[in-house]
C-alpha cells in the first residue's frame, strides 16, 4: 500500500461520553485521591503557621503572646484542627504509597514493602520524639 494510513482522533459516529465534573465522587478511591491532593493546601498552611510561630518567638515576649492569642481564636483553632487531620491523612497516604515507588535492594534482594513502610513510621516516631524532647526539655 502506498498510502499512509493515519490515526484520526475522532469520527462523528463514535460516541465519546463526557466526564462529569463530579467524577471524583464516583469511586471511594477517587475521593481518597482528591482529598490527598487537597491535603497539600493544608500542609502548606501548616508550614506558614510554623514559620509565623518561629517569627513570633524570635521577636520577643509581646509578639509571642500576640501569636498565642491569635492561635486561641476559635476560627484559628478550628482551622488548625482540620489542618491536623489533613496533615496526618497526607502523611499516612503517602507512607502507604512509598513502598510501591521505592525499590530498595540489599545484597541483591529486594527489601519487602512492609519493612520499607515500617521504616517510614519508625523515622516519623523518632523525629517526633526528638522534636518533643527539644521543646519540652
Amino acid at each position: 500500500m502506498s498510502e499512509q494510513v493515519e490515526h484520526v482522533d475522532f469520527y462523528a459516529r463514535w460516541y465519546k461520553p463526557r466526564i462529569s465534573r463530579l467524577w471524583w465522587l464516583r469511586r471511594r478511591s477517587y475521593l481518597v485521591f482528591v482529598l490527598r491532593e487537597l491535603s497539600s493546601v493544608f500542609v502548606a498552611w501548616f508550614v506558614v503557621f510554623l514559620l509565623l510561630l518561629v517569627r513570633a518567638v524570635s521577636q520577643g515576649d509581646r509578639e509571642y503572646q500576640r501569636f498565642l492569642d491569635l492561635s486561641a481564636n476559635p476560627w484559628m483553632l478550628a482551622l488548625n484542627v482540620i489542618t491536623l487531620f489533613f496533615v496526618v491523612f497526607h502523611t499516612v497516604t503517602w507512607f502507604d504509597a512509598a513502598p510501591r515507588a521505592m525499590v530498595v535492594r540489599l545484597r541483591g534482594r529486594r527489601v519487602p514493602a512492609r519493612i520499607v513502610l515500617l521504616l517510614h513510621y519508625a523515622a516519623w516516631v523518632l523525629l517526633t520524639g526528638i522534636t518533643a524532647w527539644i521543646i519540652l526539655d
Binding site: R27, S29, Y30, F33, E37, A97, R100, A101, M102, V103
Partner: peptide, 25 residues
C-alpha cells in the same frame, strides 16, 4: 501521573503500572 493507583488495582496481570511510573520519576 498523580499516583491515583487505580491502574494497579485494575490490572488483571499484576503488572503494577503505578509502581513502574513512580519508580521511573
Amino acid at each position: 501521573c498523580t499516583f491515583v493507583g487505580e491502574c494497579t488495582r485494575a490490572c488483571p496481570k499484576h503488572v503494577d503500572p503505578a509502581g513502574a511510573i513512580q519508580r521511573y520519576k
